[in-house]
Nucleic acid binder design. Structure first.
Lengths: 260, 260
DNA sequence: CGATCTGTTGACTGTTATCAACTCCGGTGG
DNA sequence: CCACCGGAGTTGATAACAGTCAACAGATCG
C-alpha cells in the first residue's frame, strides 16, 4: 500500500477513513507543499501564531504542548500521515505549541490548496472531516487515560495507541518502532514525573512488555500490553481496510481484552 | 438576546460562533424536534447505540461518561445550547454514555434536518463546524486540567469553564448557577475521589471562592477563582458578541491572570 | 576528551485514595 | 405526625502512589 510519493502516509490515513478513488489519489500527488526538517524539541508552531497553512507530518513524531519551556504537558502526539494542525483549516488560531519529538520531516500545505482539494473531491473533504473527528476521539481518550489509569497502565495505553496509529499507515508492522523521544517526553504525555516515568518503563521491561534500547522500541508481547492497558482500538475509528497478518494478530489480541 | 423559542440557547450559542442573519434564525425556529425530559443520572445514550438524531440540551446539564455503573470518569459536560452528540452527525457511532446530571430537558433533532439546515444556511453549517472544533478545544483543555493541576485548581478550573459557558448563553450572569449535580459528579469530572472532592469544596468555601448550598451555587469572587484556576477563556473560541457589564468584569478578571 | 543530555537509583515527602463511621436531609409510608 | 429509609455530605485514620531532591552512570557529540 506504499504509493511511493511524499504524501503516501497521508493517503493511507485518508483511505482508512473514507473510500478514495484513483482520481482522489491523483489530486493528492499534485498538491503543492514545502518540505521542512526539524530537530528534536524544536518548535514548529507557537502559541498565538497566525497560520495560513497546515502541517502534514511525513516522518517522525510531533507533539502539542501547552508550554514550550522545559516540561509542558503534552496534550497530543502526531504520527506520520497526520495533519497535526488540521483544525486551523477551520479556525486559524494556534492555541498551543507544536514541538518535534525527535527529528521530524513535515510538509506545509497552504489552507487554500486543501480547500480547493476539498471542493474537487468530496471523498477527501469527508476524510478530512473524519480525521478531525478522529482527533477529537483520541483527545477524549487521553482524558480517560489521565483520569482513570495509574502510571503503569497510562504508559501502556499510550504505547498501544501510538503503535496502532503507526500500523494504520503501514509502520511498526512488526511491533518495532523508532523512538527518538526521551523518557521525559513520555512523562510529559502521561503527566507523570520523569523519575517515575523511568521506574514505570523499568516495570514494563520487567514484565517483558517492552524493549526500549537506543532509538528503537519493540513490543514483544502485544496481547499482553493490550490486556494491561485495556486498549480497545475502536475509538480510532478506522475502517480497517487492509487486513494483514499483523493486524489480524492485533484483532485477536483485542478479543483478549477483559471487559470493563 | 432571549429569543423566546425552544432553541433560543442554541441560537445564542451559534451566534457566538458565526454571524447569523434573521433568515438563519428563522430556519432554526422551524426545525422539527422531539422534546424529552430526563431524571438525574438517567442515561440518554449508551455505548454502542446507533443514532440518527442529535441531542440538543435545552435545560440542565449532561455528561459523557465512559461507564454508566456508578462512578465512571466524566469526559465532558454539556450546558444548555450545546448539541451534546454533534459528532454523531458526521460519524454516527456512540462511544460513551450520555448521562443527565440532575433533571434535564433535551430536544432530539433528526440528523436529516440538521443536514438540510446546513445546506440551506452556510452560516449555520459553519457555526456547527466551529461548535465541533470548540468541543475539541474544550476536550484538549480537560486533558491539560487533569494533567497539570491538583485537585483544588482542577475543581476551580471546571467551575470557571462551566460558568463561562453558561454566561455564553445568557445564564449565570450574576455568578449564580443551578447545581443539581452532586459532589460525586464533580469528583468524577475532576478524576478525584468523592471524599477528596468534598474536602476540596470545603477548601474553596474556606477561601470564600464558592458558596454551594442546596441546588444553587454562587461564585462570590470571580476574579479570585479565575486567578486560582489560571483560567483563560480564550480556548472557548467565542466571538464575545454582546459585552454586558458582567462579561466586562470577566474580561477584567482575565487580565489579572498571572502568566504561566 | 570534557560538556551535556539522558537514564538510573535511593531516601524522603506529599497529595490523594481508601475504609469506615457518622450526620444531615428529604421523602415515604404507617 | 412520626418512624423509617436512602442518598448525600462530612470526618478521621491509614495506606498507596507519585513527586521531589540529590547524586551518579552512561551515552553522545562537538
Amino acid at each position: 500500500m506504499q504509493t511511493g510519493f511524499a504524501f503516501s502516509k497521508l493517503a493511507d490515513h485518508l483511505a482508512n477513513l473514507a473510500e478514495l478513488t484513483a482520481d482522489d489519489l491523483d489530486l493528492l500527488t499534485k498538491m503543492p507543499s514545502t518540505i521542512a526538517h526539524f530537530g528534536s524539541h524544536q518548535a514548529i508552531l507557537r502559541h498565538g501564531d497566525a497560520s495560513n497553512q497546515c502541517c502534514l507530518l511525513l516522518q517522525g513524531y510531533l507533539s502539542w504542548q501547552d508550554a514550550y519551556g522545559s516540561e509542558g504537558q503534552i496534550t497530543s502526539i502526531s504520527v506520520p500521515g497526520d495533519i497535526a494542525d488540521l483544525r486551523t483549516l477551520y479556525r486559524p488560531c494556534i492555541d498551543g505549541n507544536l514541538i518535534a519529538l525527535g527529528p521530524a520531516v513535515v510538509a506545509f500545505v497552504p489552507h487554500r490548496c486543501l480547500r480547493e482539494l476539498s471542493i474537487r473531491s468530496p471523498a477527501i473533504s469527508r476524510a478530512l472531516l473524519l480525521m478531525l473527528i478522529g482527533d477529537h476521539a483520541i483527545q477524549r481518550n487521553w482524558t480517560i487515560n489521565l483520569g482513570s489509569r495509574d502510571a503503569l497502565t497510562r504508559a501502556a495505553h499510550l504505547l498501544c495507541e501510538i503503535t496502532a496509529r503507526l500500523q494504520n499507515v503501514g509502520l511498526a508492522r512488526d511491533f518495532r518502532l523508532s523512538s527518538p523521544f526521551t523518557q521525559s517526553d513520555l512523562a510529559a504525555a502521561c503527566s507523570i514525573s520523569p523519575v517515575h516515568a523511568n521506574r514505570t518503563i523499568q516495570e514494563l521491561r520487567r514484565c517483558n512488555l517492552l524493549h526500549w534500547h537506543g532509538k528503537t522500541l519493540t513490543i514483544p508481547d502485544w496481547p499482553g500490553l493490550v490486556r494491561l492497558a485495556r486498549f480497545d482500538p475502536a475509538y480510532l475509528g478506522l475502517r480497517r481496510r487492509d487486513q494483514t497478518p499483523q493486524q489480524a494478530q492485533s484483532g485477536a489480541a483485542r478479543a483478549d481484552v477483559v471487559p470493563a
